[in-house]
Simulated assay, not measured.
Amino acid sequence: MYNLVIFGPPGAGKGTQSEKIIEKYKLAHISTGDMFRMHISNDTDLGKKVKQILADGLLVPDSITIEMLEEEVKSKPDVKGFIFDGFPRTVPQAEALDKFLEDKGLKINLVLQLDVNQDVIKERIAERQKISGRADDDADKLVKRIDEYFSKTIHVLPYYQSQDKVTKVNGIGKIDDIFEQISAAIDSTI
């Protein structure tokens, strides 16, 4: 089973590139953001808790995120592998993911870091907000999300760099050109 983490700030293109990876490599996509939005739209107890946390532009606590992620992985036993999108966001989450996968005889094979500057991020999210109307893309919440990424989430990279699993990809340019870089990175680790 092949597992990868797609890593980058909000608006880096993780969702867009994940769709292309899924199509080419037939991996299952696990987006913590999508899981949270599903719980919110279904008004589950978890969704109610998560809604307020996300509305404040904060990260959902590790315990909630990890539990949801493990459930999702266990619900798909026959897939070729997973793309983890939006997870892990903290070193404890990365350690928990490694432990969970190790217990199943699996590992993270590659961490793709989409490198995008903050000006491009803001432009992309402003455009996405017009189309999707996602509450977490509002300008005031976006600043918090970007700050969270650069103050907390970015610290996950050294964890994976110490395992020699990170490949940095320029996330600015044509979608297909970016995907060519991603494909080369995946192909070199399969």
Score class of each variant (00 low, 15 high):
81 G>H: 07
28 A>M: 11
41 S>P: 01
54 L>A: 06
63 S>Q: 12
100 F>C: 05
33 G>T: 10
21 I>T: 07
42 N>F: 05
123 E>K: 14
70 E>A: 13
117 N>C: 05
31 S>H: 05
114 L>F: 07
129 Q>M: 14
125 I>S: 02
78 D>Q: 11
102 E>R: 05
36 F>R: 05
97 L>E: 07
91 V>S: 00
46 L>C: 05
59 L>F: 10
39 H>Q: 15
28 A>S: 11
84 F>G: 02
42 N>G: 03
65 T>I: 12
65 T>E: 03
112 L>A: 05
92 P>H: 07
40 I>H: 01
115 D>A: 10
64 I>H: 01
93 Q>K: 07
79 V>Y: 04
21 I>R: 04
55 A>D: 15
35 M>L: 15
58 L>H: 12
20 K>L: 15
83 I>H: 00
59 L>Q: 11
58 L>W: 10
97 L>Q: 08
77 P>C: 05
128 R>Y: 08
48 K>T: 12
87 F>D: 01
30 I>A: 01
103 D>C: 03
131 I>D: 04
31 S>K: 09
38 M>Q: 14
122 K>S: 07
74 K>V: 10
87 F>K: 06
102 E>L: 12
92 P>C: 07
125 I>N: 03
67 E>A: 13
58 L>R: 13
115 D>T: 14
108 I>T: 09
22 I>T: 09
53 I>K: 02
111 V>N: 03
34 D>W: 07
92 P>A: 06
123 E>N: 14
81 G>F: 09
111 V>H: 03
31 S>M: 09
97 L>T: 08
40 I>C: 00
100 F>K: 06
114 L>R: 06
53 I>L: 04
23 E>W: 10
36 F>K: 07
32 T>H: 01
81 G>T: 12
95 E>V: 15
84 F>K: 06
38 M>P: 00
108 I>S: 01
82 F>Y: 13
72 E>Q: 13
84 F>W: 08
35 M>Y: 06
99 K>L: 14
28 A>G: 04
132 S>C: 03
66 I>F: 01
90 T>L: 02
127 E>W: 08
23 E>K: 15
48 K>L: 11
97 L>F: 09
59 L>V: 12
111 V>T: 11
98 D>E: 13
132 S>A: 06
124 R>T: 11
126 A>M: 13
50 V>E: 02
89 R>W: 11
116 V>R: 03
106 L>H: 11
81 G>P: 01
22 I>P: 00
131 I>M: 10
73 V>D: 01
124 R>K: 07
83 I>K: 00
27 L>S: 06
28 A>V: 12
39 H>P: 02
119 D>I: 08
25 Y>L: 09
